[in-house]
Amino acid sequence: MNAPDNKRRALLATAGVGAAGLVVAPGIRLIEAATAADAPKTTLASSKVRWGMLVDTTKCKSDCNACVTACNKENSIVEEVADPRQRSQWVRKIDLVEQRTGKQHSLPMMCQHCTNPPCVDVCPTGASFKRADGLVLVDRHICIGCRYCMMACPYKARSFVHEPLTTQNPEMPRGVGCVESCTFCVQRIDRGLQPACTEACPEGAMLFGDLNDDNSAIAKRLKEVASTQVRAELKLDTGVRYQGI
């Protein structure tokens, strides 16, 4: 009576270990493969760098949407949601008219990559975070989709993915139920490239670079021209600055 039972137990145990091995082993292999493939490209973000952008609104044209188009292409932001108020917009063009004088401006508005970002403060899980080089990003693995960051962002810079997505850029994963915003094209700048919007601007109105590097073009320009932080009274110390407003 006992002997067959023991045999059965041994068989079940072997089968169990085997099944566990089959489940875990491919994962380990994949992680190794992924690590190996990524290894040459990976560089750690440094706090010596502070990425920033200067937008010259005197050059920005109201009828031009090149930055928005480039952003959508780079980050694969293609949505078919019927209600336009539910669509994601990482960068948008805002047209401004001064109420007293009628003076007009046009400018791109996106995540301002604040030094003191309210979205990071309010995020319950820490999914909204600031990288060492000043980029404010969302960790899509731990975003629970509570939208508190969208309540807290003074620039309305964040979007919530309202329906399942079918098109993805593998370098910039997005997903339904998570919040997202401009990353300054982190996948590009980590490779030494410019953000897609900056590269696409036909007027050269967007200047991107390291605010901490005195020799960078942006640092030099910021020393020469008057620039503005939007909602400066909040003292968030934005990474994006505007010239001409």
């Binding site: 995020c123 731990i142 975003c143 629970i144 339904v176 139920g177 998570c178």
Partner: peptide
């Protein structure tokens, strides 16, 4: 929640600067 399935994430990752 957008990701109600991640309730365990909410329970195990707490950012103490957040009122939530």
């Amino acid at each position: 929640l957008g990701r109600a399935d991640r309730i365990m994430v909410a329970a195990t990752h707490v950012n103490l600067t957040s009122v939530f």
